[in-house]
Every structure is written in structure tokens, then in C-alpha cells.
Design a protein around this nucleic acid. Structure first.
Lengths: 301, 301
DNA sequence: GCAGGTATGGACGATTTGATCGATTTAAGT
DNA sequence: ACTTAAATCGATCAAATCGTCCATACCTGC
């Protein structure tokens, strides 16, 4: 609790400028400790006392409640996954928000944040769940928090180029919406107008969506396959329709084993969000000469 | 998001003079926080609350981080459901946002917007789907648009009182997340700290969540029952756990036929969001003397 | 039409805020 | 211990805000 904060940190937490906060320190409204070099340091205790005394607003409570995460370490990928796991299981939405947005604002690519922070965090929660260290409702609640976070992230992105349309979905019976939503955001980060149709969409309806929109790309996140034969058959119908509209098909998801993949026909298989991002970039660069359909051209082993 | 605005910024946003706005602040119509130097600061949430309460115009919505508004004639419940249906099927997210947020800014209660605009729109889409006038992917896409809209709406609400905790969920096998999300927003609109755990949560895990959080309220949205016997049994376990923590149980959803309801034990059944809102209000007014468990006390026929 | 009460919004000097600057200090990485 | 990028310092200054006053516009009852 006697963690020391810089004037800038306190200023951000209470929603004012660094200049004003420094002036208030010099006026004696906030007691400060000085470093050997003359920099001001304010204890969390003192910052909270000031907030109470002045009835001042607190815009970013997590900065005062979790000062350990406000230093520069917070802006690094390393360790973020573990901190996110903890924040998710603690139902601490603000902390989750802070972790991801700090990385985003620090310039980390969306795909890297997803691959190296979000995905590991949910893998970790899944493992804890299997070991009975976490409850089902905690996992579901974590998904809710993350979904809200993803939505906020999406709303902060620059509006994409409307000339490059992509449609995304999960297949019928697959309700896992986080991966497919992350894929949407990754594609939008490379200036692709990605539109998530939703989860659990039958292949026949996907075919109609492709025919109606003629997108440059369709991405499918396959976390669960209820009926393998039906999946193969439906995918073939989608593939046929996509070739007519010169639409690339990108697939991903843990349900696509290599055995299944060898029997599918798609433009790219993406293990990670980074692969998807790179595929999206190639699509953007050469929208006409893009390989529209190639048998089993996996981008990565 | 809950950033602070100066009186001048708010005045510009709602199209009035700085002088008047300062006077209204001093009259207590707008809650303000003060800087150490005595300058007024107004949160976006408070500004929106004022606009809704006073039915004030908003000439610069972007200053309050709101979507652009249409003309004032659009601020009516009548006809909004039809316009929303059309906008949803046309995949026009901006139009959907405009319709709902215009009503929100005009001071319509959240529950009324949901009951008389959103719900009818989705009923209408469901009917079109049954008549083969709309595709499955259109319905799913509409749900995505609405889910994003609901998230945005939620972020515009004033942060609720943390002393009145409510947990919400759908039961295992029920993946329909719109009603349960709307319920969360309705409860938050009556100053209840409603937290949506997620969809498809087994009763045993719900029991653990209740034991961990001891909420004043649990709401269940039941759109689909896979196993009726299992549902009855699980609900009984939840009911027992809830009585121990003095937690009220509110249920709703089209899967709860009157035949099923007669065999359940809950605090309230809500046909509409308005019923839920009213129940939330009673809970807030008398948090101690609230009837925690009564057999089949339907709030409405 | 007119008197009286009320709400609005512009103007004023005094005060506060927040952005900027080059110089200095901190702290992460090696 | 050393290097180096980032953060902070102190100081300055334009812009914003404060509280107050007041002219004007609007409403209401007569």
C-alpha cells in the first residue's frame, strides 16, 4: 500500500493534467516525497487522502488500486498473459481493460496481443478448469469480460476500407465466439472491412451470404465439429460457392486436426492470429491476383 | 470512457450557453465534481443523465461520444420497431445505433425501448425467417449488431450502486444471449450492479457463483430447455442455495410455459423488461424486507 | 398592451488549467 | 558499471474557467 506513484500517474488516475498536479503538490495540497534527484513521489495512501479531502473525481480507479501494474512492465507482452489470467478469474474488468489497452496504446499489434496474451490466458483458464481449480461460471464470466473488451477495442479501430469485404462465422453447433470475434478485429486492423455474421451458422446460409455479398474473404473459426461428415459436405458446398464469387476461404480453430485439413479445400489455414493478419495483408496488396482457391496450402505447419 | 468534461464542452454539446449550464450546475440539476482550483467537471454519464431527465436537445452528439442523431421526429417509440427491423436486415449498424440511441437520449426508459422496439424487431425477423423471407445469417448478423449496440448502451449508463449485486445467466444448452444481456442493462438502469455471468451455465456452477458472491438477486433467462427433468432438478438446487444466501430469483423467457412455472419456486416471473425493471426498483427500495422466496408469485399474468 | 417575474446568455477582471520547452533524473537492458 | 530511452523537472504562457453583473428575451396575469 505504500507504493509510490509519479505525478503523471496520479494525474492520470484522477483525470487531470500533470501540470496541475505538480502545482497542487507545490501548494502543499498533496504531501510528496522527493527522490535524491528532486523528482516528486506520492504514496497511494496520500493520493487517496487527497481524493477524499477534495472530493475529487477518480477516473481510473485501477491505477490507484493496482499501482504495480502501472509501471513500464505493464507495456510489455511478457507476463501480461499471467496478469490477464489473474484479472479475469478475479472478475476484475477494469484490470483486464488496462492490461490489453496499455499494450494496444503502446503500439503492439492486435494479432500479437491476441496470440501471446489473450489466447494463453484462456488456455490457462481452461487448464485450471480441467484441474478443478476454476469454475465453469468463472470461465463464462471471463468470456463475457473479454467480449466486452473486444468490442471496445473494435470501436477504437480506424474505420476500415469498405472495398475489401470479409465475412466471418462459426459453423452450426459451434458457439465459441471469442476466436471468431478476435479474427474480425485482426482483419479490421489490416484495413479489411471484416463483418462477423455470427456463431452457429449453417453452411447453406453461409453460401447465401457469400452469394449476397460477394466478399473477397470468408473466415471460419472451427472450435467444435458436431457432425464430421456433415461438416465435410457443407464445407464443399461453401467452397464451390466461394470459387464462383472469387472469394478466398480462410479457416482456423482447434477442431481442425491435420487429418481433417488434408481433406479440405481452402485458401489458407491459420494457426495464429498473426497468420491471419499476414494473409489479410496479402489480400489487401493484391486484391485481384490473390490465389482464390488452392488445395490445402497451409501457411504454417 | 467516463471522462470529465468542462461546462463549456457540455454547453456546446447540448446547444446552450456556458452561463446557463453553470447556473444549472449550481442549482443541482447537474452533479459536478470540482478540481482543487474550483473548476467544475462533469462526467459524460452525468451529462447523458441530465439530457435524458430534462429531455434536452443534443446538438453535438460526438462531444458526448454518442452516434449522430437523426431528426427529432425520429425520437418516437411508434414506428421505431419497424425501422429497426429494416435496418437490422439491411446490415446497417449505424442506422440501428441511431434509432436506439435517439430514443435513449429522448429519455425513453431502457425497458420500454427493449419491450416495444428491440423485442418486436427480433420477433418480426423470426417470423420472416419462418416464412423464408429472411436468411439464418441475417438473423445471426442482426444479433451481432444488437449485441454490439447493447454493449455500447451499457457503457453509457451511470455506474451502478455496488451494494446491490445481481448475477445473471442462461442455463446449460441455452445460447440465446440477447435477452439475458438486455436484462442486465435493465437492472443496471435501476442502479443495480448486475453482472452477466454468461450463457449456458450449468446449475451446479450457478450454485457455486451464488455461494461465492451472495448476490441480492439472480436472474435467469430461459429461452430453451433441453432436458426438462434436469431443469426442474437443477432449478431446485439453485433455489435451495439462494434461500440460504437470501437471494431472490427472477426468471423469464419464452421457454417457461405456465405449465412449467407452476412447478417452479421463484421470487418473480417477468414477462417483459418493464416487469424486471419494477422488480429491481422494489429490491432497491427495501433491500432488507424484500420477499426473498415465494412460491410462484408471478408479477403479471 | 403592459407591468412584473424569470430564464438566458454575453461581458468583465481575477484565477486556474494544461500544453510546451530544454535540462536533468530515472530505470531498464547489457 | 555503463548506455540509452523514457520520464520528470521547473518555468513560461496562452487558453479556459471562475464568480459576478447586467442587458435582453420570454412568459404570465391583468
Amino acid at each position: 500500500m505504500d507504493q509510490l506513484l509519479s505525478p503523471k500517474q496520479v494525474a492520470e488516475a484522477i483525470g487531470t493534467s500533470e501540470s496541475s498536479l505538480k502545482r497542487w503538490c507545490d501548494l502543499g495540497l498533496l504531501k510528496t516525497v522527493k527522490t535524491a534527484g528532486g523528482h516528486r513521489r506520492i504514496s497511494v495512501h496520500e493520493a487517496l487522502r487527497f481524493v477524499r479531502e477534495q472530493n475529487h473525481a477518480v477516473v481510473e480507479p485501477h491505477l490507484l488500486s493496482m499501482p504495480a501494474t502501472t509501471d513500464r512492465r505493464a507495456r510489455r507482452i511478457e507476463g501480461s498473459a499471467e496478469r490477464l489470467t489473474e484479472a479475469l478469474l478475479a472478475d476484475n474488468q477494469q484490470a483486464c481493460h488496462a492490461i490489453v489497452f496499455d499494450l494496444f496504446l503502446a503500439g503492439e499489434s492486435i494479432s500479437r496481443i491476441f496470440d501471446e496474451v489473450v489466447a494463453p490466458a484462456f488456455r490457462s483458464i481452461g487448464e485450471k478448469w480441467e484441474c478443478h481449480e476454476a469454475e465453469v461460471y468463472q470461465e463464462r464470466c471471463s468470456c463475457q469480460i473479454m467480449l466486452r473488451l473486444l468490442h471496445d477495442l473494435r470501436s477504437k479501430q480506424v474505420p476500415p476500407n469498405p472495398n475489401l469485404v470479409a465475412l466471418g462465422a462459426t459453423i452450426e453447433g459451434d458457439q465459441y465466439d471469442l476466436p471468431v470475434t478476435m479474427a474480425e478485429i485482426v482483419l479490421r486492423s489490416v484495413d479489411c472491412d471484416a463483418r462477423l455474421l455470427g456463431t452457429s451458422i449453417p453452411f447453406d446460409s453461409l453460401v447465401k451470404a457469400v452469394q449476397a455479398h460477394s466478399p473477397e474473404l470468408v473466415w471460419l473459426s472451427v472450435s467444435f465439429i458436431a457432425d464430421e461428415a456433415g461438416f465435410m459436405e457443407g464445407f464443399q458446398r461453401l467452397s464451390t460457392a466461394a470459387s464462383k464469387t472469387r472469394t478466398a476461404i480462410v479457416v482456423g480453430g482447434r477442431a481442425l486436426t491435420s487429418e481433417i485439413r488434408t481433406r479440405l479445400s481452402y485458401s489458407a489455414f491459420c494457426d495464429t492470429m498473426r497468420h491471419l493478419e499476414e494473409f489479410g495483408k496479402t489480400l489487401r496488396r493484391q486484391p485481384d491476383s490473390t490465389p482464390k482457391k488452392a488445395r490445402n496450402t497451409r501457411k504454417n505447419a
